[in-house]
């Protein structure tokens, strides 16, 4: 178990003394009234930059070669079934892994924004696991395939319609070399 410091923030603020909606109270507003400064929080630092590529230490270095970039696998709404049309994408990854024995793959499972965030975290994991199972069936050793679910937290497309949702329901591949 490791420990990290919690970075307490914080920002000063005006004294916005409430009390709207408290019928019958002697005074509706305290000093300063209900105004508030929403921009008092300091800018976020950049410590979190690159966190999406952070890995469990054992994975090795991210491979950025063009031939290690693979298409995302698409899913139907609330489904982790791999459609016939998506199989070739996974087969391409399997070919690469078989041809490059020192590599491992991390499969990121993603969902669209509909549904509960907690359920979507589980659904995204299921999507990544379904891809993993197919890779294993194609002859890739299970210990070379890691999964990570982002649920609905990392959309590729920030829109809110069918086209955006289709892009966001995906399994994505990152390859690592030891």
């Amino acid at each position: 178990m490791k420990r990290g410091p919690i970075r307490m923030v914080i920002a000063a603020a005006t004294m916005a003394v409430l009390v709207l909606g408290a019928a019958g109270c002697k005074s509706k507003n305290g000093p300063g009234g209900p105004g508030l400064d929403v921009d008092v929080l300091p800018p976020f630092d950049t410590d979190g930059a690159g966190w999406t590529q952070a890995t469990r230490s054992e994975f090795g270095d991210l491979i950025t070669d063009a031939n290690a970039k693979f298409e995302n696998v698409s899913f139907a709404y609330d489904s982790f079934t791999i459609a016939q049309s998506e199989r070739r994408k996974i087969e391409a990854v399997a070919d690469y892994l078989v041809g490059n024995p020192q590599t491992t793959v991390v499969i990121d499972g993603h969902c669209d924004e509909r549904g509960s965030r907690e359920y979507n975290l589980s659904l995204g994991e299921h999507r990544a696991l379904a891809i993993r199972a197919y890779l294993i069936s194609l002859g890739v050793a299970g210990d070379r395939i890691h999964t990570r679910s982002f649920g609905e937290e990392q959309p590729l497309d920030h829109g809110h319609g069918d086209a955006s949702w289709l892009v966001n329901r995906r399994g994505a591949f990152s390859l690592f070399r030891k």
């Binding site: 000063a12 916005a16 409430l18 709207l20 909606g21 009234g33 209900p34």
Partner: peptide, 13 residues
């Protein structure tokens, strides 16, 4: 005690 400075918000109906 631990949150030295606070951002105060207005509650509203």
């Amino acid at each position: 005690a631990l949150s030295s400075v606070l951002v105060l918000l207005a509650l509203r109906l």
